[in-house]
Design a binder for these strands. Structure first.
Length: 274
DNA sequence: CCTATCTCCTGTAGGC
DNA sequence: TGCCTACAGGAGATAG
């Protein structure tokens, strides 16, 4: 599922490919994915030029020259692909933005959980942003903040890591991996971690996110993440526990276990993670 | 305030 | 072989 490293990789791809292009036309087949509604979204962006591409948490942002901002959420398996306009139709493309250079940005998402939302101005973006925790690579995301958030929750540590209101951009894959490297059982109540454990986890969260960025994201078999170019990421080749149920732990050889925490698949080594 | 459960959706896997 | 059901999962809504 696209998390911070995947969305950041997509952001970089979009920056290279669509900044400076003007949106000529919008084609869609799933009205409920266009917010606030298809008509206002389309009338608000037609003829506008993309001047900048940003990201907040797991959301790519397209800043337009009319002051409006197009926000995407790819949810579980959304893709943003830039292609030459062609008749061949991709089964899961829900909306397509046609540019003035003969290319288009396709938003594909099988389950229809994702959406594209047009914000009128920066103030509306701030409303969205206000509900989110700090970005992991910002100065607000420091150890003091991290430990404070953990100490205030009795929820499972993995759930807290993935809570966008606490920390922005961390999802199932990177939370799972960070907990392995920190040697912490994902079921532990967040407030049960010692200062040393919190510090280890803090360091490992940042480290695994950097690794994900370095390898341009994780393309798991059916999670369908692709870069803007259509290339897969490569971090799946470096996962320690995620998706490795029954395979030997890379550190101790114990079979990796898969359990559910609040309905979410969680992989861990019962020997290395206490 | 806090936490757990339900909901949206559709392809895939597993059972018979 | 094919039909049927269960399941996965981000995050907002809802319930307790």
């Amino acid at each position: 599922m696209p998390e911070l490293p995947e969305i950041e990789t997509i952001r970089q791809g979009l920056e290279e490919r669509i900044v400076g292009l003007t949106i000529k036309e919008v084609v869609f087949n799933t009205p409920k994915m266009l917010l606030p509604d298809p008509e206002s979204l389309i009338s608000g962006i037609k003829g506008a030029k993309v001047i900048q591409v940003g990201r907040r948490a797991k959301m790519p942002l397209l800043f337009l020259d009319n002051g409006k901002i197009l926000v995407f959420h790819l949810k579980l398996n959304g893709q943003l692909l830039v292609r030459k306009v062609s008749k061949t139709k991709d089964r899961f493309v829900r909306v397509s933005f046609v540019f003035d250079n003969g290319e288009e940005l396709r938003f594909a998402e099988m389950r229809k959980f994702g959406w594209a939302k047009l914000l009128k101005n920066e103030a509306e973006l701030e409303e969205v942003t206000a509900r989110l925790g700090p970005e992991p690579f910002s100065k607000e995301f420091n150890f003091g903040y991290f430990q404070e958030k953990l100490s205030r929750s009795r929820r499972a540590i993995k759930i807290v890591l993935m809570d966008q209101k606490e920390f922005a951009g961390i999802g199932n894959i990177y939370a799972t991996e960070a907990l392995f490297y920190a040697g912490i059982d994902p079921r532990r109540p967040a407030n049960s971690l010692s200062e040393d454990e919190s510090d280890r986890l803090y360091q490992k969260v940042l480290w695994v996110l950097k690794q994900g960025l370095k390898y341009q994201g994780t393309t798991d078999r059916d999670l369908a993440y692709l870069q803007v170019s259509g290339e897969p990421g490569r971090f799946q080749e470096h996962l320690a526990v995620y998706g490795r149920e029954g395979k030997p732990c890379l550190r101790c050889g114990e079979p990796i276990r898969k359990i559910k925490i609040s309905g979410r698949g969680t992989y861990f080594c019962s020997q290395c993670q206490k």
